[in-house]
Design a protein around this nucleic acid. Structure first.
Lengths: 201, 201
DNA sequence: GATAGTGACATACGTGGCGTATGTCAATTA
DNA sequence: TAATTGACATACGCCACGTATGTCACTATC
């Protein structure tokens, strides 16, 4: 029986490592995840990890990049599936909050990621989610739908508001009620960006 | 020569530990701070630390509480020193951003704190800063200055936006320019909360 | 005011996790 | 087929944490 080409084996190894690490980081957290444990779970040892990713931090970067790419993709799909640009934008923002309710995203992207890798805006992929928000804002601005502002700056503010809202909701006693309050306030905040005369659209 | 009473010695010990830990956490970060090192710097050993704070996490909690109390106090002073409630509120929010530019606050309160202790809204002191923002919003709402919204929810959104903005500014290539962009967008966002007919006040 | 008791610390020890240095074996290349 | 590369495993040392234990001063009670 013919073996797979080497490059394929390598990609498989890397994928297995990322998958195992993602599972571990997403559940027990970065600090508590033992490299010996989750590499063994992938049928490998720490040797492979150091060879491919240079260390624990390198693996976290890879996991972050993977999750971030998935988030971007999901967000793009959501904003594209709405009729008006403004509705698409609002939907995307709300989806952003909802995604951050997922434990894995919360643990890896909101808590451990920034603590270990530093400010998200310095991450290599430039946080695709921010990019997505930014381009959306640019279009809304060009169309005169929202007030004049720096798109990237506004995207970051919105992103920050969303993420903290998610943390709040996820840890609240009554997530349902809290979610309603947060999303309500959030929509109001976005509404304030509409150019004069367009409110409550 | 008469010795100090015991309770005073204890308070002193605790204060020394908190101060040393605050220095270490604020500079090298929580994970990289060696308990042996910074307890020694305080003229003590890990024994004292475990006795008073139960462990490394306990000390971080104490440090967080101390910094949070200081931040609250500073914010209260700022919002009180402005004529109109709205101006005071805006000034407090901007100050919130500026405070988060300080490396110690950033490292401890924004990065390590959430990663180690979990969501800030679950912290015992309930994050005095959020409380401060919330009460301010309540007053503005009662006076009819801003649109109808849940004060706490809005306070958390604003807080999140501020904190991420700070991370962005602090890590930007050109902090000056970035700060202008961020604060500009931020004021615009707050402006959207004003009740109809009150804009650009 | 002697004695038992409590509590604030220091010391000693074991364990686990990380990083590095080294080894091995298969796959490519000539 | 011989040489080389590189993917991965193994082995070692170190550092840091948590716990268990010890000591000594202070306090309280009679």
């Amino acid at each position: 029986m013919a073996h797979k080409p080497r490059s394929e084996m390598i990609a498989e190894t890397r994928a297995k490592l990322v998958a195992a690490a993602r599972q571990a980081f997403g559940t027990v957290g970065y600090a508590a995840a033992s490299m010996d444990d989750f590499t063994a779970e992938a049928g490998l040892t720490r040797g492979a990890l150091y060879h491919h990713f240079g260390g624990k931090e390198g693996l976290l970067k890879a996991v972050v990049a993977e999750i971030d790419a998935e988030m971007s993709q999901r967000l793009n799909g959501i904003s594209a599936s709405h009729a008006s640009p403004w509705q698409g934008f609002v939907a995307e923002c709300v989806a952003y909050i909802e995604m951050a309710l997922e434990p894995e995203i919360q643990r890896v992207m909101l808590l451990d990621g920034p603590a270990v890798l530093g400010d998200p805006s310095t991450w290599p992929n430039q946080t695709g989610c921010i990019n997505s928000l930014t381009t959306n804002l640019k279009r809304l601005l060009q169309d005169g739908i929202i007030v004049d502002t720096d798109p990237e700056a506004m995207a970051r503010l919105i992103s920050g508001a969303s993420l903290y809202a998610s943390l709040w909701i996820a840890n609240a006693d009554d997530p349902q009620a809290t979610s309603k309050k947060a999303v309500g306030a959030f929509k109001l905040l976005l509404d304030g960006l509409l150019a004069d005369g367009r409110k409550s659209s």
